[in-house]
């Protein structure tokens, strides 16, 4: 069928098996972070950034779908944590604290951003992490980012493309119109549709939660 073209070759296959995921156990692998903190606060935070910034950023991205915003959120969490001086008296791991704080902030931001009238309330991220850690909140956060993902996946292809160019690459509607050879109106319509789908997804979860609580 012409698909398979025999390739003459004498090389040996060099590709390797993929690495197995690590075994699952709560290992307190934060010893070295505490050791770094003992040396200096700067060293401690450097270790924290090195270990957790990338996955936290990735996680925030699931909520906000904008690189800049995700970076802002994670940096703000680190920044506040640094300023608060609570890193000296941590109960539990840094990991739990940082994930809870980032999720809380991202969640608050998304709910605020997609509200119809933005001006009425400003985003106030309640850093009451004890509250953010009750089982309902944990699940609420997880469902939120999953719904956002679903909503974006279900957008028509072109609409999804426009949305990703706008949000992920920070392109202006005009630039997107030129790049995709669309009229500005069409791009605006795609964006409006994408945002309305997102709003719906977030609204649904709010209603569900009210229903069950």
């Amino acid at each position: 069928m012409g698909l398979v073209e025999k390739l003459s070759s004498s090389e040996t296959s060099l590709r390797e098996e993929r690495l197995q995921p690590e075994p699952s156990k709560v290992i307190d692998n934060e010893h070295f972070i505490r050791a770094a903190f003992a040396e200096s606060t700067g060293k401690g935070f450097e270790a924290l950034f090195r270990l957790y910034y990338q996955p936290l950023f990735s996680h925030a991205l699931r909520f906000v779908y904008t690189r800049e915003k995700a970076e802002d959120i994670v940096c703000d969490v680190f920044h506040d944590f640094w300023k608060s001086n609570t890193y000296d008296s941590m109960q539990g791991t840094f990991r739990s604290y940082l994930y809870a704080a980032v999720r809380n902030r991202a969640y608050t931001y998304v709910r605020y951003e997609l509200k119809e009238e933005k001006n009425t309330t400003s985003p106030e991220s309640s850093e009451h992490l004890s509250e953010a850690n009750n089982p309902e909140s944990l699940i609420e956060y997880d469902e939120l980012y999953q719904r956002i993902d679903q909503a974006i996946l279900q957008l028509p292809a072109q609409c999804q493309r426009v949305f990703m160019l706008s949000r992920f690459e920070g392109k202006k509607n005009k630039e997107i119109a030129t790049e995709l050879n669309l009229s500005l109106k069409t791009v605006e319509a795609h964006m409006a549709k994408a945002l309305s789908q997102l709003r719906k997804a977030i609204l649904t979860i709010t209603i569900l939660l009210q229903w069950f609580s």
Partner: peptide, 15 residues
């Protein structure tokens, strides 16, 4: 999250 990263970011820059 480490196994399903959504995007790359530089921790050095953020730090």
């Amino acid at each position: 999250e480490l196994n399903h990263l959504q995007g790359r970011a530089s921790w050095e820059d953020a730090f």
